[in-house]
């Protein structure tokens, strides 16, 4: 009965929320049919500062953000501060897991032959794909977070697939720490060079080239490394058992 009531309440709430959202957001029309003065148009056109100019892939140069991926330009350029916050959230979660489980005893899993062999072959490939994804974050879908997670998955696979994992996680910590610190230093460099924190102070190049979009690729590499090392750390910590009250 209790569960039915909860289900009912959740459904009612969901109904109201979807109706409310429907009144605010237009899901049913293509972007070109929407109000031209909406704020998001400026993001789409890569034209927040109002310098104008058409957006042509492979040709437009020195755009304000310079990323071919709109999502990336929002996440790592226009609202880069939020991303800094998000990696901090992940950092905190890793810290929390470390504090709770870090002092526990490591358990070793026995893994089968197939897993061991496959892990040896697949894990490097996964690692490579992960690196690819976050280095191309400004060009293709993906970016630091998925890329980093993929790296962590590779680590997990490697972890399952080998009986003798080195318990020394110091390098992971170092990567995590350095990447995070570099992100902030990059932001501060923006403050000193261009005048505001996390500002894109490098030339943005041509839209669609690998070396373009200023600091965006750099940030995404750092984010990828940080996320990868952090999630790996979490995985390693979760494998410990501790008796807690």
């Amino acid at each position: 009965m209790k569960k039915l009531v909860s289900l009912f309440l959740i459904l009612v709430l969901a109904f109201f929320l979807t109706t409310a959202l429907d009144q605010g957001l237009d899901f049913w029309h293509s972007p070109s049919q929407l109000d031209a003065f909406r704020m998001s148009n400026a993001f789409v056109q890569n034209d927040v500062l109002g310098e104008g100019g058409a957006l042509v892939f492979g040709e437009s140069k020195n755009l304000e953000s310079g990323s071919a991926n709109i999502v990336t330009s929002i996440v790592v350029d226009y609202r880069s501060f939020d991303t800094l916050g998000e990696i901090t959230v992940l950092f905190l979660s890793a810290l929390g897991v470390g504090l709770l489980m870090g002092s526990g005893v490591r358990t070793t899993l026995r893994s089968g032959f197939i897993l061991k062999t496959a892990a040896k072959m697949v894990a490097p490939l996964m690692l490579l794909t992960g690196i690819y994804i976050f280095t191309h974050g400004h060009l293709t879908p993906g970016g630091g977070f998925p890329g980093g997670s993929m790296m962590a998955t590779a680590f997990l696979l490697h972890y399952f697939g080998s009986d003798t994992v080195k318990s020394n996680l110091k390098p992971l910590k170092w990567i995590e720490s350095t990447a995070g610190a570099l992100y902030i230093l990059l932001g501060l460099a923006g403050l000193f060079v261009a005048g505001s924190f996390l500002q894109n102070f490098l030339p943005t190049g041509t839209l669609g080239h690998l070396v373009s979009a200023g600091i965006i690729p750099l940030v995404y590499v750092l984010v990828g490394l940080k996320v990868g090392s952090e999630v790996s750390g979490i995985v390693a910590d979760f494998s410990k058992t501790e008796v807690v009250s």
Binding site: A42, V48, L49, D77, Y78, S80, F81, A194, S196, L198
Partner: peptide, 11 residues
Amino acid sequence: IIGGYEPPFGI
């Protein structure tokens, strides 16, 4: 302002 974008575009 952060990131060089005036509100409402930036943070």
